[in-house]
Design a protein around this nucleic acid. Structure first.
Lengths: 131, 131
DNA sequence: CAGCTCCTTTACGGATTCTTCACGGTTACA
DNA sequence: TGTAACCGTGAAGAATCCGTAAAGGAGCTG
């Protein structure tokens, strides 16, 4: 279901082994390169978009507050009323959706934060089509 | 699909066998000769252009930073503000495009670097998101 | 020397990104 | 249902990044 997170280390035997590639859903996130592949196709993400994606993907399934995302990606304390995280979540969603229309990755938990997890996108039937 | 990289060794049986020819898309890159063929037709590349092409083609599909390309092709550390890599990417693009108008080889990832991968140059996409 | 090609560097302008604001829709709750 | 907080996202302006034309020097050839 939802999603599993496979972490591939560059040098599994090394004590300094760092996660090098994240696999989740159809996404492959190459940390060192700044590259994201969706079903093998490269996405063009900006630096902020990429870092935000990484910050969330590293904590698959967990709700992460905006404060934490801000500290991780923007480094520093989030000013009251700052919407940067929201804006970039929106940008990220747009690009992920364009690449993988059948998946939904970023879920909003009002009052808490965001949760990253690949799930099938739900087709919400409109009221007029008699659902 | 994106692109496969076929590596042909000069002496397949030798333990020191080095890749001698790279095939990617319609390009054939003969490393030892410094020759590049596009659909069988020879390109005229300068030394820098050829080495830059090789550096990228050897890492098909990966994003390579300007720093790394500079170290590989120019050998030495890139000075801050040095645009040599960009200038030669531009020259290379011009020649590749002249030879293979329907292909796009060098992709820019703003803030990260360049990615080499043969892709169709024109996507005939019907998008409703405008632009 | 004259004419070439190649390489390096600079400069200009367009493209992209980042930040911030604003408006409207959504959600939570009494 | 009313209201306040929460959230999605378009857009504007500034900053940054990138494409590439062009100038000038080095080296090569006749």
């Amino acid at each position: 279901m939802g999603g599993t997170l496979r972490v591939v280390a560059a040098f599994p035997e090394s004590p300094e082994a760092q996660a090098d590639v994240l696999h989740t859903g159809e996404l492959e996130i190459r940390l060192a390169e700044g590259l994201v592949l969706a079903t093998g196709r490269a996405l063009t993400l900006s630096v902020r978009e990429f870092e935000l994606l990484v910050a969330m993907a590293k904590r698959l399934g967990a709700i992460i507050t905006r404060e934490e995302l801000y500290r991780t990606v923007w480094s520093g304390e989030q000013r009251r009323g700052d919407r940067s995280v929201d804006v970039y979540v929106s940008k990220l969603r747009t690009k992920l959706e364009a690449a993988l229309p059948d998946r939904r990755f970023i879920h909003t938990h009002p009052g808490f934060g965001y949760r990253f997890q690949p799930e099938p996108s739900r087709f919400v039937h409109t009221e007029t089509t008699g659902g």
